[in-house]
Design a protein around this nucleic acid. Structure first.
Lengths: 227, 227
DNA sequence: AAAATATGTTCGAGTCACCTGATATAGAAC
DNA sequence: GTTCTATATCAGGTGACTCGAACATATTTT
């Protein structure tokens, strides 16, 4: 199999993410993600189907085949390894790594991919809390729930913050909400009202309290803290 | 000015190197370097001329304009920074960095370029001993002479080893001839015969002695050691 | 069930950024 | 001035997309 072109890789990523979100990978949804027109997407989906990367049912959208999923995971792995690397070893700020990774993920050789993975200690999560697939396409297990729906007064660990909105990233980071942070939901206002959070600061400091909107609290995912 | 395409960057690099070697940047010479046909090169040269990157005289070849030179130097800077970075920070073996850099140099953002440069301490020479242009296109001064022609029994510092032949690279490296190494030419056999070298090993060890062919000794460049 | 709306597909076409073989021509060498 | 070689022009092709417009299919509303 030949190396997929950058455009193909972008399609695969988009489809993968849609599937992850539970939404159907439909023509329009993909077009919107990629900023293209539906007509373009249709013809690309047909090509992807020909290459055996997706199963395509006209008017019904696509889903990734086994090989398609693997190809998608490989791109995602590269993307996330690059993000993490840039952050840890080159001091690239968190909200900037995504765009840089977007450019590099298409040209990273398998050799360098492994070098970087080893340098990072074969990590399982990137700076946004997203899981990093292994080189064979295994995903680390996680049991994510939206922060908004976390049980009250049970410590939760922030695992995922969407990486597509730098403004929002900075805002939540300023509250101390970063992947790995431990948060308690202490209450929720009714009618889709804000959630009250108690956020553990570093080392002995008292936790800080904030109320954040339901919208944001639903896009952030947490796991129940192990301890 | 738009970002040059990878192909354009490759042309600029090839032209730059030909000029450096003193050879005229002629259609065929460029075609040979890039593994293309003369017809293809002619039409690309016309495009480069339109973009103001080269001066083109039909049947006479090209030379880089001011902006062309700057563009070439930027690519070369990226290439060499990447080489050095991969070697120092990711442990990529010396003979492998060139090919990897070839793929990455076209997608490195100015931002990352600077991050990397700073991380490396704004170096002036890459692992092959090639000078790294500054971000404004300044080249560090050097006064290179072919190892074969170095004055006898005067310590010389290895500055440049051509990076296009991995076999040869490994051979000379095994003798201790790497950029930065200090070498004494202790004699030369007549009729294009081998040169006798005394190569300083690391730290206190006695220098080793070898005879190397005139061919190789002419492709390696040295400067008179500062001390 | 028909009409209205939303979604998706086909078609024809275009672009971009290259590359090439065949043939013609300029410049240099004899 | 002829010959040789390097170079240029021409006409054409390719891969890898992208798009608008017209048509087809689904879904929802009445």
């Amino acid at each position: 199999m030949v190396t997929p072109t950058p455009a193909v890789e972008d399609y695969l990523k988009a489809i993968y993410r849609l599937q992850q979100d539970g939404s159907a990978a439909t023509t329009n949804a993909i077009a919107e993600r990629l900023g293209l027109r539906a007509a373009s997407v249709t013809s690309m989906l047909q090509q992807l189907a020909e290459q055996g990367l997706v199963n395509y049912t006209p008017y019904r959208g696509v889903f990734l085949t086994e090989t398609g999923t693997l190809a998608a995971l490989r791109v995602i792995r590269r993307h996330r390894l690059i993000e993490l690397y840039l952050h840890k070893h080159l001091g690239v700020p968190w909200e900037r790594v995504h765009d840089e990774a977007e450019r590099l993920e298409h040209v990273l050789s398998p050799y360098l991919e492994e070098k970087i993975a080893v340098k990072l200690g074969n990590p399982s999560f990137d700076p946004h809390g997203d899981p990093i697939p292994s080189s064979t396409g295994e995903l680390p297990a996680q049991d994510l729930i939206p922060l908004y729906e976390a049980p009250l007064n049970v410590p939760a660990t922030v695992r995922h913050i969407p990486d597509d909105n730098p403004e929002m990233l900075r805002y939540v980071a300023s509250l101390g909400i970063i992947p790995g942070a431990v948060v308690n939901v202490t209450g929720r206002e009714p009618f889709d009202g804000p959630a009250y959070l108690s956020i553990a600061s570093s080392e002995g400091e008292p936790p800080t309290n904030h109320a954040v909107g339901a919208g944001i609290a639903r896009t952030i995912y947490v796991t129940r803290s192990a301890i």
